[in-house]
Design a protein around this nucleic acid. Structure first.
Lengths: 173, 173
DNA sequence: GTTATCTCTAGTCAATTAGTAGACTTTCGT
DNA sequence: ACGAAAGTCTACTAATTGACTAGAGATAAC
C-alpha cells in the first residue's frame, strides 16, 4: 500500500507551487523546492519534467527561470497525479478502473478477496480523486496561520534570496 | 498502493481454508490450494509456513497431512495478515500507526500531504482491520449459493479425490 | 558572452519480488 | 519396518523497480 518517493516528491512540489502562487510567487526554482523539502535536486528535476509533459506544470527556462503550475490548483486532482507517477490506485489489478486486468482466480464474480479489495480501492479513489491541490493548499495555509507558523515562499518572509542577498552585496560593493 | 503477491496468495489460501472448514473439510493440502488458485506450489508453501509461525494456520505433517486454520475465522483480521506479509498499511511511514517513522518534511503538523495520506491510511485500515476472515467466507459462500455455482472443497461435490479415485481403482483392481 | 537556469539521456546501485531447488523430517498404511 | 506422501528448512536466482547520480546541451537574462 506504498506511495513511491516519486509520487511523494511530486505532490510535495505541487503543494509548494500552489502555496507559493497563493502568496504571490508564481514561479519557484528547483533549488528552492529541493531546499525546502530536502529532496535530491536532480531527482526532483526529473519528476518536475514528467509533470510538465503531463501538463501539470509550466517552465520558464534560462536565468530567472523556474516552475509554475500550468493550471488552476482547483483543477489538479491528486489521484490523477499519483496515477501518472505510480500507476493505478487499486491494490490488485482486477479491481482497477483505469487499468483492469483479469487475475488468475477461477471466478472473479465470486472471489472474496476481490470484493474486499474493490472496497479498498473505492475508498482510496474516493479520497484521492476528490482531493484537489487547491483544497490541500488552502487547508495547509489555514493551519499555518492559525498556529502562527511562518509561511514559506511568502514574498516578505525570509527566503533564499534574503539570506543570499547581503553576502552578494559584500562581494560586489 | 499495491498488494504484493505474497499477501494476495496468503489471503486466497486463508479464504479457501475458511471455506473448506465451513464445509466440513478442516484440512487442505498445499497441492489442493495451489491447484484451485493456480499458484506456484513451493512459493505457496513458504507463505503458509510464514502464516504458521504467525499463528494463523496449523499443520499436520506426514502423509494425509495439510494445513488448517489455527483459530476461529472470526478472529482473523485481514489487516493483520497484510501487515504481517507486506508491512504497514499506510502509504507513507509518517502516517503509520504500527510503524511510524518521521519523514523529511520540515513540519509534520502543517504538512498537507501528510493530512491527505493520513486520511487514506485511516480509510484503508478501517476496512482491513474490521474485515474478518469469517465475514469474507460467509459472503463468498452466500454469493456462490445464490448464483448456484458449485462450491469448492465440499465433501460431496467433485474434487480432487473424486477425479483421482476412479483411475486408482482401475490400476489396482 | 557569461551565468543561471531548465532538458535530456544514460548509467548505477541496492533492495525487493516472485519465485526455484533440493535435501530433510514426519506420518500413514500395509 | 518400509515406502510413499505429506510438510520444513535453507539457500539460491533472475528480473524488476526504485531512487537516485552524472553530465553534456539548450535557453534566457543581464
Amino acid at each position: 500500500m506504498n506511495l513511491s518517493k516519486r509520487s511523494e516528491y511530486a505532490l510535495r512540489a505541487l503543494i509548494d507551487l500552489g502555496i507559493a502562487r497563493e502568496l504571490g510567487r508564481p514561479i519557484l526554482q528547483v533549488a528552492e523546492l529541493s531546499a525546502k523539502e530536502k529532496l535530491p535536486v536532480k531527482f526532483l528535476e526529473q519528476i518536475l519534467s514528467q509533470l510538465r509533459v503531463a501538463g501539470y506544470v509550466e517552465t520558464k527556462r534560462g536565468k530567472l527561470g523556474g516552475y509554475s503550475l500550468a493550471k488552476p490548483a482547483s483543477r489538479i486532482k491528486l489521484g490523477a497525479v499519483i496515477r501518472l507517477l505510480d500507476g493505478p490506485l487499486a491494490p490488485i489489478s482486477c479491481v482497477s478502473q483505469s487499468a483492469y486486468e483479469r487475475c488468475t482466480c477461477p471466478d472473479e464474480a465470486h472471489c472474496g478477496l476481490r470484493m474486499l479489495m474493490l472496497d479498498v480501492r473505492n475508498s482510496i479513489a474516493r479520497i484521492l480523486d476528490r482531493a484537489t491541490l487547491a483544497q490541500i493548499v488552502e487547508i495547509t495555509l489555514r493551519k499555518m496561520r492559525r498556529d502562527s507558523v511562518p509561511v514559506p515562499f511568502a514574498r516578505h518572509s525570509f527566503g533564499l534570496n534574503d539570506l543570499l542577498a547581503p553576502a552578494v552585496r559584500e562581494i560586489r560593493p
